[in-house]
């Protein structure tokens, strides 16, 4: 008897999950804003219970738009992003964007969310301070500065740059 008591809530959750999955399949794409629940952070937060909510999937209206990327680069300087994230996004007190790696996810929606609502360790929330259009241009810019794979740094054969001792 007592075992069944423990099982009941689990069954309830599992049942709800199935129902939600069915709902999501039935819902037409794109998902309407008022039904959005969260932004996925696949790189940062591992999957726990099977999710029944469909993640927010937003596309950047400026994705790949060269002139918007250039404008984003100017906004990056004008709103002081450069002073924390370094020239060309090379990293300073804030993380680098040149490595193409993202603590809170690198999809356009995830980067938008990082800028819009801020992040722990000092990233300010810019939502409401600058327009959503400007944030999307910043998203396009910071996703454009990656320099390639930085996994290995091989010092072999490099000249030692040392003067002194």
């Amino acid at each position: 008897m007592s075992r069944l008591w423990y099982l009941l809530p689990c069954l309830a959750i599992a049942g709800a999950g199935v129902a939600a999955t069915n709902d999501a399949r039935q819902a037409a794409t794109p998902v309407r804003a008022d039904t959005l629940r969260f932004v996925a952070h696949d790189d940062y937060i591992p999957v726990g219970m099977p999710s029944r909510a469909r993640p927010l999937s937003l596309t950047n209206p400026f994705e790949g738009n060269r002139s918007a990327i250039a404008t984003g680069g100017r906004i990056f300087v004008a709103y002081n992003c450069v002073d924390c994230h370094g020239a060309d996004g090379s990293g300073a007190m804030g993380p680098s964007f040149q490595d193409g790696r993202w603590r809170f996810g690198g999809s356009p929606a995830e980067v938008f969310e990082s800028i819009y609502q801020g992040r722990p360790e000092g990233m300010p929330a810019w939502g409401g301070r600058i327009s959503e259009e400007q944030i999307w241009m910043l998203v396009a810019y910071v996703r454009s500065v990656a320099v390639g794979d930085l996994t290995t740094e091989n010092f072999t054969g490099l000249a030692q740059e040392r003067m002194g001792h």
Binding site: S90, G91, P95, D99, R101, V147, L150, L158, R162
Partner: peptide, 15 residues
């Protein structure tokens, strides 16, 4: 999530 290129001011320090 934050791997950096060599700096230009102290290029060899990471070695």
């Amino acid at each position: 999530h934050d791997v950096r290129v060599r700096g230009t001011t102290l290029p060899d320090i990471g070695r």
